[in-house]
Write a protein that binds this DNA or RNA. Sequence first.
DNA 1: TTGTATGCGTTATCAG
DNA 2: CTGATAACGCATACAA
Lengths: 334, 334
Amino acid sequence: MAATIQDVANKAGVSQSTVSKAMNGTSPVSDATMKKIQKAAKELGYQPSAIARSFKTRSTYQIIFLADFPFDAAFVNPHLFEIMRGVQHTLSKNGYALVMQQATAKDICSIVETAYGQHKADGFVLHMSVVTKKLADVLNKLAIPHIVIGKPGFDTRMCWIDTDNTLSGEIAAAHLIEKGYTALAFVGGRPDDMTCWRRLQGVRTTLREHEMDLPQTHVLKTNSSLADGNHAVKKLLKMSPAPQAVICANNPISLGVMQALQDRGIRIPADIALVTFDTYPFSVYTEPQMTVVDINMYEMGQEAGRLVLQKIKHPKRQIQSFTTTPVLIQRGTT
Amino acid sequence: MAATIQDVANKAGVSQSTVSKAMNGTSPVSDATMKKIQKAAKELGYQPSAIARSFKTRSTYQIIFLADFPFDAAFVNPHLFEIMRGVQHTLSKNGYALVMQQATAKDICSIVETAYGQHKADGFVLHMSVVTKKLADVLNKLAIPHIVIGKPGFDTRMCWIDTDNTLSGEIAAAHLIEKGYTALAFVGGRPDDMTCWRRLQGVRTTLREHEMDLPQTHVLKTNSSLADGNHAVKKLLKMSPAPQAVICANNPISLGVMQALQDRGIRIPADIALVTFDTYPFSVYTEPQMTVVDINMYEMGQEAGRLVLQKIKHPKRQIQSFTTTPVLIQRGTT
DNA sequence: TTGTATGCGTTATCAG
DNA sequence: CTGATAACGCATACAA
């Protein structure tokens, strides 16, 4: 059997509580006994039992990451894992572990209630996609430490952090303006795609600040697929004034636009410049590589980790904010 | 405070140990008292403490997944997450939780030793990339339940499962033969890339079975990048006999080959057919879509989960095997 | 600075 | 079928 704190105490010739104090520095111990204890512990290969400690301190040192991990998740929602990596990193540094668990909006409440009720975790990191109003009530009523990744679509007292897509849009627009492009177009996603929509808002804001215009005729709505990008090109080329630069709301759209443009012999960026958002999946594989406004999801994960630990220590603090600044990566398309 | 088993016992007017037996079905209980207990438990919202149970039963019901999660992991090694999803699914169904933790070949030993020594987990799922001989010794000496994802590069008594890349190669070759292609070429990775190498071996095996040949001149070595795929085309077109079909050892290579082929006006599959491995990242985004031999990593994860639980129950059983059959997905390039 | 005593919530052994 | 009782390993209030 593994050595217990009692074994160490016996071997060192001191009491069990003294060993505890010595190990945790929770109360002063004389040099002499400290030495004895360390020696005994080392010889026995003593390792404190995390379970017993949890039992006594009534905390698990665990955080559960809940999301609806889709089939082929790494491709469908790669950000999820970059965020998880970040969370894990922070937690690990603070002696906490990250548990990964699948959930849906449907079963999230019962999962959280039982996991917390049975003391399986001290807190939760929740992806926006599984967050519901009912969950917000549960979290609030039971005062469960948590942080939501992504701003919930409804008013709530939950704690959340998100990326600033509006700011990303502003940065994209500012870059194009700085490069001297005056006639812009925007190829977006569906009206209910908040990410795309916020990026568009950002673009608009910056253009307005420069007293430039983005007429409704130059804003295209699509379903965010590569094929939609292809089709958008027909409309882009009919616009008047002809766009000198196109902002694509996401990677698939931008790849579609680029392909169709190049198929017609239009040179990028000489004839038309292109900007999109996020590095993956395609932006570094195109020729030329895409200029993008990127976001460091790993950093956001780290911040989420810090915040959930903070909530555990200070349950009353409420955090609702944007984090991690988007950054422009200029490559070949502008 | 949350209700304890004692509270339930008091409310039901029975002893604490009877409640335990009733809840766990660990010893027969009369219908009448069972009813009383269930009623009391429900009214109190009783939830058993997982910590206390762990403490008593000396098991954590946790498995740690250890891998070197790289920067932009979802793109660099997407399979990792599909596997994790599978593991998590199986564990969850069996009342276990999956902890995600970053590790490197350097620190893996100390991580495993302390995590196991401190009773933070009952077992481990380890990615091949962090597995060392020293780790194998530790695992063996302490009889730690584990399963390695990927066959280790050295002889060992560790338990592992892997995908059968050789079989994948065989399937790719068989498909081309069935389609009537007789002159083949193979564009591979570096000689030390075992995945590529095994796929090539599989191709060779099947060709030999059909008394066909893959001469050394028709096997190209590259660094597995898209650009390498591009460059390979020059050599492919100089080969004699001219290849009717090309097997690319992985996705980036195949995309490069396809691009360069199409740039020269060569039609796929009319002039040259193409086969590669894995669905992502590119195979569904090309035009035409790639025919691939794919592997279900989620299934492999599920299997890994089952195996590690089995190892916990039967520590002596040793498993070293291939799992999950590769499957041909015929699309537009053959 | 050290030791004694207590209890965290559960399961399990044993007697009744 | 039920109940009393003893651990599990540790942290901590309190006493010395």
